[in-house]
Nucleic acid binder design. Structure first.
Length: 345
DNA sequence: TCGGCATACATGAATTATCC
DNA sequence: GGATAATTCATGTATGCCGA
């Protein structure tokens, strides 16, 4: 779409005023406030043109204009000048993570809090799944005949469990021995490395004829069969910030937003969508159809370790959020979380 | 002559004030 | 508290001016 410089200036003025006030923006306001040296009538003509091509809309005939989702998308893609975070802001964010130690849950919760506090929107962080972290300990608990509870503990403290059936009835003593043996050979490996290692060890064991090893490996093979059931965790901070935005404060909208937060699966699906992406992504209004709330935008970025994505973090707020500030904030926080987790996981 | 822009004016909707 | 009037603010359109 080709817009003249004048059209772009007027569109930019409408959108920046709307982001600031959440109110429709009139031609006279633009004429007075933005020093474009154009009369309100001229600005009205341009606004009518921008409305015709779908970038602006008018809530009612005697109101000013507000940007459409399409207008905001055009603004973000073509006109937005992203502001860099200041050194002081970066330092403040970095310092917030100090003293949290190696507790991944605390680090992610803090990331969510930082995103919420710094943006005055809602901060969300999708935790890494078990398959992306390294194993520290595997524990077997005998439940009853042939039924065993397997507990997986990752190096970063993520715990998953699974109940398996084994053809032999094993005593708790035997299970403890297996656990110690498997800790020795599987510790510090990722889930895919674990599976490979078990196959290698089974191959070796064929020549060793060690009954204990054979049982332990069979048991571990069963434990890791079909993967480890993964419960995805999501950290959400700053729910109350919704109340600061008049366009989201009607009862029905708030109900829908809080429902999405209660049913975490909706937020998880939304964050999952950007797992495969690189860098910061913006979903404006209906582009994030999963939340099902009009007037909401989501800005996300995956955090990584090397080339593999561990999880996603982001900000949920009104479509009129200050994208020039939110985008670098999400990007920097994701880079910082990647950096911190790389040392732990 | 034509296009861009400004002024003037009629109109519509929301908000505020006033009255009962 | 509800109905009505007055005010405010933003719009669209007709018309005129000016420069290319």
């Amino acid at each position: 779409m080709k817009l003249s410089e004048r059209d772009k200036k007027i569109l930019h003025a409408v959108i920046s005023d709307y982001i600031e006030t959440a109110e429709p923006v009139g031609s006279r306001t633009i004429s007075k406030k933005h020093g474009l040296n154009l009369s309100p009538a001229t600005i009205r003509n341009v606004m009518a043109d921008l409305e015709e091509i779908g970038l602006l809309t008018q809530p009612h005939t005697s109101a000013g204009r507000i940007p459409t989702e399409y207008g905001l998308r055009f603004y973000v893609d073509s006109m937005l000048k992203v502001k860099r975070l200041s050194r002081a802001e970066k330092e403040k964010i970095r310092n917030s993570f100090k003293g949290l130690g190696f507790d991944v849950a605390n680090i992610l919760k803090e990331a969510s809090r930082i995103l919420s506090m710094a943006s005055q929107h809602i901060g969300v962080v999708l935790a890494p799944t078990f398959s992306t972290v390294r194993l520290k300990h595997i524990e077997f608990l005998r439940l009853r005949d042939n039924l065993i509870l397997v507990i997986f503990i990752s190096k970063s403290g993520i715990v998953q469990h699974k109940v398996i059936q084994f053809e032999e009835d094993l005593s708790q003593d035997e299970l403890d021995k297996f656990s110690r043996y498997l800790d020795d050979i599987l510790s510090d490996l990722t889930l895919s490395e674990v599976k490979q290692k078990i196959l290698e060890e089974m191959e070796k064991e064929k020549t060793a004829f060690d009954e204990m090893l054979s049982k332990a490996l069979k048991l571990s093979k069963r434990a890791f069969q079909n993967g480890v059931e993964e419960e995805k965790d999501v950290y959400i901070e700053g729910h109350a910030n919704i109340l600061n935005y008049p366009e989201l404060s009607d009862i029905e909208t708030m109900k829908a937003i809080f429902k999405a937060f209660e049913e975490k699966s909706i937020i998880i699906k939304l964050l999952d969508k950007s797992m495969s992406a690189t860098g910061v992504q913006t979903f404006i209004g209906s582009e994030n159809e999963l939340i099902g709330v009009e007037g909401c935008s989501v800005v996300t970025s995956p955090y990584t370790k090397g080339s593999s994505t561990l999880g996603t973090l982001g900000i949920i707020g009104p479509t009129r959020m200050n994208y020039s500030r939110v985008i670098p904030l999400v990007g920097y926080t994701a880079r910082l979380v990647s950096e911190i987790l790389a040392e732990i996981l």
